[in-house]
Design a protein around this nucleic acid. Sequence first.
DNA 1: ACAAACCCTGAAGTCACTACAGGGTCAACC
DNA 2: GGTTGACCCTGTAGTGACTTCAGGGTTTGT
Lengths: 152, 152
Amino acid sequence: MKIGELARQANCPVETVRYYEKEGLLHLPLRDSVNNYRHYDSSHLERLLFIRRCRALDMTHDEIRGLLQALSRNDEDCRQIDDIVNEHLHHVQQRIQELLALEHQLKTLSDHCGSGRPVSECGIVHTLTRPRESEETLIPLNQEHPGGVHRH
Amino acid sequence: MKIGELARQANCPVETVRYYEKEGLLHLPLRDSVNNYRHYDSSHLERLLFIRRCRALDMTHDEIRGLLQALSRNDEDCRQIDDIVNEHLHHVQQRIQELLALEHQLKTLSDHCGSGRPVSECGIVHTLTRPRESEETLIPLNQEHPGGVHRH
DNA sequence: ACAAACCCTGAAGTCACTACAGGGTCAACC
DNA sequence: GGTTGACCCTGTAGTGACTTCAGGGTTTGT
């Protein structure tokens, strides 16, 4: 099958398939000797679906590479695979904790607004522009937000 | 004060200050006519602290620009400011829901491992390589994970 | 015969930084 | 006065996982 058909079956943009190839996640497909089009078989589709399922679980390409390697070694003990998944689960749980803290701070901020007042009296503005004495209590300035909340 | 002092007072890397300037978040400072060093006053520091507090709440530069604009307009109604904060809170809450779903999927995956078995019998591998019939039930392939869990 | 839909490559853009490379300047001490 | 180390400057490239674009060629359907 050609790249469009593969992409459709994996519910994945064509450009992403080419990107995975460049990243070394997908094996190089055969090329049509006339027009240089890529031609895939079912093993490519299976591998792509595997990758997309892992991405749907928000794993990085490095984590996926680890899983694919463990798979291809076909060990008698699947501990390595379990380790990768569990470490990833740990990342996710940490991130949830960070975001819950963030949610709390934003709720507090919003509660302080007292909407309808002039900007100069808005509680949000007061908190965000407040002098440095009370620093670190409401909004600690040194925290990292590794994942980011945004982007779509 | 010079850039190093400003950065120290805002607990922020010097490179980031220069980056905020390039992004148009910080006003251009005066320059020493001899050595071209940047020279800041307390209004720059206040603005930088404001930006850093917003970033600690994981707002984007666009959101921060919106807040700074609303501030400079000094409206008689702070509704715009409240809107920006609440929309951001909504982003965070959505992301938390996504990650909780993710956590559940990964826990299920890990539970299925049955560690110690050969890779070919590992429950994780079975789920991730399973045929497409049961697709969308355990791991929907079309979901986005805007923020990402990783990076530090 | 022609248009729409597909395929190709390679480069640049996204976001909020971070990390160089390759310089110039300043303050303190010997 | 020389030197060491901390500071400052500009500009470019790298991060991750794509997405978008420019500028082509090919296939398919009517």
